[in-house]
Amino acid sequence: MNATPTTLDREENVEAFNLVDPVLLKELRVQMLKFAVLQLSDQQLAEDAVQDALVGALKNAASFNRKAALKTWVFAILKNKIVDILRKRIRLKETTGFSTDGEGEEGQNSLFDKKGFWQKEERPGAWAQPMEAVKKDHFWLVFDTCLNELPASQARVFMMREFIELDSTEICESLDMTTSNLHVLLYRSRLRLRDCLEKHWFIKGDRS
């Protein structure tokens, strides 16, 4: 995998390219690629989508003097590209052939007792100031780690639903799964993700 996109060296992009810190660009590209690979399950398609998004964004790089603005912009473009690719797949009725069987059942069962009530240790606590957490870099490291710990099928639907903001119908068609399967996967992903965030970030609050 080449960290320096060759297309960026084309003349029309050189000027814009120089305006962006190369270290930042490299980091951004890694994050984007990870995101795209998970969504598309195809390294080459993902690299192309990231490449296009970066080139598109950098054409207007002069107007981005804030890092956050550039990042918001490239991710917005990337999301659109991924949605386009996924919609094309829906039209082609291409199935990605991944199943929901057996993933994550064990983790879920241990959260509840036999009657379906929270195990004492697992009962969700109150999260103190979640909107303060998002200002901290370390929080996002924890968030990434928790996402990575989800089974791939759960992480994928969670990201399609919450990051790309596709609706249930679009995800079901794209992955050729039933609505009830999707809802189970989303449910499991949310159970796990919140559990992981609570255990690794939020100080366990009052469980009484």
Binding site: F35, A68, A69, K71, T72, F75, A76, V134, F163, R190
Partner: peptide, 14 residues
């Protein structure tokens, strides 16, 4: 969680 996910792709990690 939904708010976190939105911030994740909107530069909230910066």
């Amino acid at each position: 969680l939904r708010d976190f996910a939105q911030l994740y792709t909107q530069g909230g990690r910066d």
